[in-house]
């Protein structure tokens, strides 16, 4: 029995192999010599900058303008617990939708319908309400897992030097299979993203012109989403009342959505 465990679960080495250790130390330098950006590290950094170990709360407001229609306004709270991949959204405005809730846990997204009192599995790929935002826009990011770079270039966006990456989705769970992103070179935050369909059709363009820095993290507190399919359609999204206070566990349960619903 002991030999079985030793064979399958060998003791962890106390020290790293010195050669491996030196290679790890030298890795960033080697990368620098080639002038190739370490895209995986960049995407990982994007995740690190925008996701939180603790809980996250913010009040979102979306103003959507579609041609020929009155502008519509939505306001809702977003509760996130990124370390377990959980998110809850509860509507505050319009009043007729107040209390309507959504729950996301590890790619499972439920919408609680106040008429049928039924949870329905929804998709992160769906639009949020009648806006140009997607359900996935509120969730924690997973750039490093979900995308790999096809090509890259350097440029400027406004006054900021940026890296421009053409990305391809690595799994079928991503909202858009292809993306083009503009990442600020100095601090590694996302400034702009173009979202493409399977057929490489430009679906929408998202601008992130304003961030708030909280501890070592950045939160885009203003976003402008242009619908490239419907000319003139756009949604502006702003965040307020950002908080990192610990949330009650039940916030991320179906029971909570049933309680707040009307």
């Amino acid at each position: 029995m002991i030999s079985f465990f030793r064979r399958h679960f060998p003791p962890r080495p106390r020290f790293l192999n010195p050669i491996v250790f030196l290679l790890i130390l030298a890795a960033p330098v080697l990368r620098a010599d080639t002038d190739q950006p370490d895209v995986a590290a960049l995407l990982g950094q994007l995740d690190t900058l925008t996701n939180f170990q603790g809980d996250f709360t913010a009040e979102y407001t979306e103003v959507t303008q579609h041609p020929g229609q009155q502008p519509s306004v939505y306001r809702h709270d977003v509760y996130r617990r990124d370390r377990i991949g959980a998110m809850t959204i509860v509507m505050r405005y319009p009043d007729s939708q107040k209390g309507q809730g959504y729950l996301e846990v590890d790619n499972n997204f439920w919408f609680y319908d106040q008429n049928s009192r039924l949870f329905s599995h929804a998709s992160l790929k769906e639009n949020w309400q009648n806006t140009d935002a997607m359900n996935s826009d509120f969730f924690r990011t997973n750039w490093a897992r979900d995308y790999g770079a096809v090509s890259w270039s350097e440029g400027t966006l406004g006054v900021y030097p940026v890296l421009i990456l053409d990305l391809k989705g690595t799994n079928d769970q991503v909202t858009f299979p292809f993306k083009k992103v503009w990442i600020r070179k100095d601090i590694g935050i996302l400034l702009k993203a173009e979202d493409y369909s399977f057929s490489k059709l430009l679906m929408r363009t998202v601008y992130y012109p304003q961030y708030v820095k909280i501890e070592d993290h950045y939160v885009a507190d203003r976003m402008l989403i242009i619908d490239n399919l419907n000319v003139g359609a756009k949604t502006e999204m702003t965040l307020a009342n950002i908080s990192l206070a610990t949330l009650p566990d039940y916030t991320f349960t179906k029971a909570f959505l049933q309680q707040v619903n009307r």
Binding site: T57, A58, E59, D77, Y79, T88, V90, L157, G158, V159, Y160, I187, I189, L191, K192, T205, Y207, P209, Q210, Y211, V212, K213, I214, E215, Y218, D221, L224, I226, N241, I242, S243, L244, A245, L247, P248, Y250, T251, F256, V260
Partner: peptide
């Protein structure tokens, strides 16, 4: 819209605002 990136774009947030759960946005 690219012109939106012509000036400062990052603001700091006070520690108090980060950790205090505003009554208006709490799940309760």
């Amino acid at each position: 819209p690219d012109d939106m990136f012509g000036g400062p774009m990052v603001e700091g947030s006070s520690q108090a605002a980060q950790t205090a759960q505003g009554a208006s946005t709490s799940p309760e």
